[in-house]
């Protein structure tokens, strides 16, 4: 767990995730950050407690006549061995937190990087289409092209650090960018930066070259 995280998830993101109403791509960034940050884990649990209170307050509605018996049958229909959940495996030396490893199909060495030019590499992860999420590999000192945002962009640092007009973001930090932010993230010198970035609308690139390349990059 990381004790030096300065930039956390916002309340609306945590609440929407607790409510189960965040695009899958954003959900992956939230789940990954929460795996690294006990502060947000506690905030998430308190938003889930609101869900518990909402459920408790909901008016009841009538169950089917045989509902309880049908449920007991569902219970006995599950073979005993399926009821046992495997103990949580904690891979202490993995770089990627568990939710991310599940999408990659392994740790960082299993990522299938594709070059996007300027020595920057990316790997798009499969999620539902309402938003997209990718791993980005930015060599030390290299910049991601200057861009603005049409929707929301979440960028979570997994290794190294990047700096933009807003601040410096280190391991575990998450930057929440929206329409108001136009930025040029640059990987800090000395250490290559790996981050997880999700967007719910295509980025707006300022330069001509990246704009031409945009359909190919899928950003």
């Amino acid at each position: 767990m990381n004790m030096t995280i300065k930039h956390h998830l916002t309340d609306p993101l945590l609440m929407a995730y607790a409510a189960g109403n965040l695009p899958e791509a954003f959900g992956l960034v939230v789940a990954t950050h929460v795996s690294m940050c006990d502060e947000c884990r506690a905030r998430l649990a308190s938003f889930e407690a609101v869900g518990g209170a909402v459920l408790e307050e909901t008016d009841t509605c009538e169950m089917a006549e045989d509902s309880f018996a049908a449920t007991m049958k569902r219970i006995s229909d599950v073979p005993e061995e399926e009821r046992i959940t495997a103990p949580a495996t904690t891979a202490e030396d993995a770089l990627l937190p568990k939710p991310l490893r599940e999408y990659v199909g392994g740790d960082i060495d299993a990522v299938e990087w594709k070059s996007v030019g300027g020595r920057v590499r990316q790997a798009i992860l499969p999620t539902s289409k309402d938003a997209s999420v990718r791993l980005l590999y930015i060599p030390a000192g290299v910049a991601v092209p200057d861009h603005g945002h049409r929707g929301t962009e979440l960028t979570l640092v997994l290794q190294g650090a990047f700096e933009d007009e807003a601040d410096v973001f280190g391991p575990g930090d998450v930057e929440v960018a929206n329409e108001e932010l136009e930025h040029t993230p640059v990987a800090a010198p000395g250490h290559d930066c790996i981050c997880l970035a999700a967007t719910d609308a295509p980025l707006r690139f300022s330069g001509l070259i990246p704009r031409l390349a945009q359909p190919f990059l899928g950003i």
């Binding site: 309340d11 609306p12 929407a16 409510a19 109403n21 909402v54 929301t152």
Partner: peptide, 20 residues
């Protein structure tokens, strides 16, 4: 409404005003 899955994160206001 938010918990019934009826509001996106951008519709949920920053200041939720919840006593958490």
């Amino acid at each position: 409404r938010a918990y019934f899955g009826d509001m996106s994160h951008s519709e949920i206001a920053e200041e939720t005003g919840l006593p958490l």
